[in-house]
């Protein structure tokens, strides 16, 4: 018995480093954020330790400047929430649609070549995100590469406005997050038994039908993992919408940063951060329920 108790103690001791990291690095900060959302803003940023729900109030609502008793929906915030969700969903869909053929291409190369293609997919990760985003800006700004080329060749007379639009943000995010879709999709396809594809063809399915009835259901776990990996950082994206979207196409990440910076309203920023967390968790739960609706074997 004593021996058993001792080994039990050892188990806990061995777990301590992991537990410490979990408490200090994961749950701890989250609780601090949650606590700050119920405090009062300090004058120079930071918080005063006085309980207040003002931060949460201002997440969704606002008071009239002249008549503090008149309360309205905070239209600007709601627009930003919606834009964040919508752009993140669109990014996920774009990454899935473009990532599928990319991953398929890699998975169907001879095994010794696949490593090279995977390596090429990861090359963008080698340099700083900000630099890559500025490179995209260089491509799409009014006197950037694309507009200059189009005007030189006489296809257009005046530059197409691409910077500071939703398009620019989508382009940037799809580019940045594409590898996060391609890699899990590739992993799923790598495990795909191509004899099943042959069996599909053999049983009179056309290429499209084989794709729909055989390949897509079998690589679904890759889509699910990829979608989660793309959607979560998209919702909180900061650099891409900041550089390519400017002030006009602000997303949640920028709004939160604004409250902690120039806005000097940490409780509001903290409340917004919690809202973001809720959005992500809710979307994930809904998505996984939908993805596993047929009792599939996917567990994420």
């Amino acid at each position: 018995m004593a021996e058993q108790r001792e080994s039990h103690l050892w188990k806990w001791l061995l777990c301590t480093p992991a537990l410490l990291v979990l408490v200090l690095a994961a749950s701890g900060p989250l609780f601090i954020v949650l606590a700050y959302s119920f405090l009062t803003p300090g004058t120079m940023g930071g918080v005063r330790w006085e309980f207040s729900t003002e931060g949460w109030f201002r997440v969704f609502l606002q008071r009239d400047i002249f008549d503090p008793d008149e309360v309205r929906w905070n239209q600007a915030h709601l627009t930003i929430f919606w834009r964040s969700i919508s752009l993140s969903l669109q990014t996920t869909i774009i990454c899935a649609v473009l990532g599928f053929p990319t991953a398929w291409f890699i998975a169907t190369r001879p095994p010794h070549r696949r490593a090279l293609w995977l390596f090429l997919i990861t090359i963008p990760f080698w340099t700083n995100l900000l630099i890559r985003t500025f490179a995209i800006q260089e491509l799409i700004r009014n006197n950037g590469t694309i507009n200059t080329l189009l005007m030189r060749t006489g296809i257009i007379d005046s530059p197409i406005q691409m910077m500071f639009t939703d398009f620019a943000v989508l382009l940037g995010m799809a580019y940045v997050f594409m590898p996060l879709m391609v890699l899990p999709l590739y992993a799923a396809m790598d495990k795909l038994d191509f004899r099943l594809v042959e069996a599909g063809y053999d049983l009179y399915a056309s290429r499209i039908k084989v794709l729909w009835y055989v390949i897509l259901p079998l690589v679904k776990p890759g889509f699910i993992a990829g979608s989660i990996l793309v959607f979560i950082p998209s919702i909180g994206a900061y650099v891409t919408p900041r550089v390519l979207g400017g002030g006009r196409t602000m997303m949640l990440g920028n709004l939160i940063a604004l409250q902690f910076g120039q806005g000097r309203n940490w409780p509001l920023g903290a409340a917004l951060a919690v809202v973001m967390l809720v959005i992500v968790v809710t979307t994930l739960v809904l998505y996984l329920r939908w993805a596993n609706r047929e009792g599939g074997q996917v567990r994420v």
Partner: peptide
Amino acid sequence: PVNTVFQNYALFPH
């Protein structure tokens, strides 16, 4: 008009 029984059966697992 030909069907195959594969060596490893290749049944659709889903």
